[in-house]
Amino acid sequence: MTIYPKIFLLLGSLFLLSACSNRMTLNKLQDNIKSKLAEQPGDFAVAFKDLSTGETILINEQQYFHAASTMKTPVMIEVYKQAAAGAFSLNDSFVLKNEFKSIVDSSVFSLKASDDSEKELYQHLGEKRSLYNLVYEMIIRSSNLATNMVIELVNARQVTQTMRQLGASHIQVLRGVEDSKAFDKGFNNVTTAGDLQVIFEKMATGEIVDSASSQAMINILLNQQFNEIIPARLPSTVKVAHKTGNIMHVQHDSGIVFLPDGRKYVLVLLSKNLQKEDQAIKAMAEVSEMIYKYVSNRDK
């Protein structure tokens, strides 16, 4: 009669051993991420930080990438910083225009609506829009027209200086969008995964300008309209405040992931030299899913 408790004890031990051996570790997760991204031709960087535990994964986090539209998050940060200092109000209105000066020689250039992901503003040139509206369109629809107007207001150099003050030592914002003369000379906005992680962590913890400004920026980022990477394979109950970026052979996503139980983490996924962009986007979305499953299952 005493054999049964021993059998149950043995089975319980085997089950516990199996569960432990199958449980994902941070190192195993990192190896799986590297393997997944290695399947795609191109260069990738990953920066992940769980804000509840401090667990971190960094892969090529100091490698430089063309920032593409990820630089619009630093620009938004500068807007809120200057607004808090009294330089202007987010309710101030500005006349929509499509003439900007190259940083190379101050020659005038214009943007094409056909090359912009947000086209409606071009139909309202000469009309006024609030600064908040311009920032909102710059982030959620990645409006290049709004971006250039905002950068002209806050000054690209000030954006970079603020990034340094926040501890992001590599992000560099030199110019607005579609300044072809600057592009031809190699004057480009650049970033690293590590720097984007720094600014999103500070935003998530209410340390950019103040807690109210940080939350206001998060609220804008939560309305992001381009969701092919970080949020793509996550449950609808998971909210992501993020900013994407893409140009030819480049696909980025970066932001804060909010779990239903209140936990949150920062995730940055950058890529360049892509040969099969659709497949790379899918792989990066799968990496996001892998990280979510690790975080959500860790304490189970």
Rank of each mutant, 00 (worst) to 15 (best):
M71N: 09
A47G: 12
K119L: 06
M71I: 15
F94M: 15
S142K: 06
G194D: 03
N219P: 00
Y292F: 15
D116L: 12
D184I: 08
K300E: 08
L58V: 01
S117N: 15
V135D: 06
R23A: 11
D115C: 02
I256G: 01
L269D: 04
P231T: 04
I59S: 11
D261T: 02
N189I: 07
K72P: 02
M284V: 02
S18C: 13
G167E: 11
V159S: 12
N223W: 01
G255V: 03
G194P: 04
Q165F: 04
I57E: 09
A212F: 02
D43Y: 13
K276E: 14
V295Q: 11
Y122C: 07
T56H: 01
F258V: 00
I230K: 02
A204D: 01
T53V: 01
K272D: 06
K181G: 06
S102Q: 07
L58Y: 02
K181H: 15
R175A: 12
I218L: 08
Q215L: 15
A113D: 10
N219F: 01
D299A: 14
I59G: 10
P41N: 12
S114I: 14
T237V: 02
Q161W: 02
G194A: 12
I230Q: 09
L259P: 01
V75E: 08
K202P: 00
Q30A: 14
E207P: 00
A68R: 01
E277F: 04
G176H: 10
Q161Y: 11
S106N: 15
T244Q: 05
R23S: 09
Q172G: 02
L145G: 05
Q30G: 08
Y292L: 01
S106M: 04
S142Q: 11
S102L: 13
A45I: 03
N60S: 11
E118C: 13
K6I: 15
Y294K: 09
R298M: 08
N189R: 07
E55H: 13
S110A: 15
M163G: 02
K49N: 05
L270T: 03
L14S: 11
F226V: 09
L51A: 05
N32L: 13
N223M: 08
K112P: 00
P5Q: 12
D105G: 08
A283D: 03
R129T: 04
V238N: 00
V135A: 09
V159G: 10
M138V: 08
F183H: 05
M24Y: 09
G206H: 05
S13D: 00
Y122E: 04
S143Q: 06
L58G: 05
M138W: 03
M163E: 12
S214Y: 06
P260H: 05
S236P: 00
R263N: 09
R157A: 15
K185Y: 11
T147E: 07
G86C: 11
A232L: 08
V173Q: 08
T192K: 05
E55C: 07
N219G: 00
Y132C: 01
Y265M: 06
S35V: 10
D50A: 12
N223Q: 13
D92G: 09
S117Q: 06
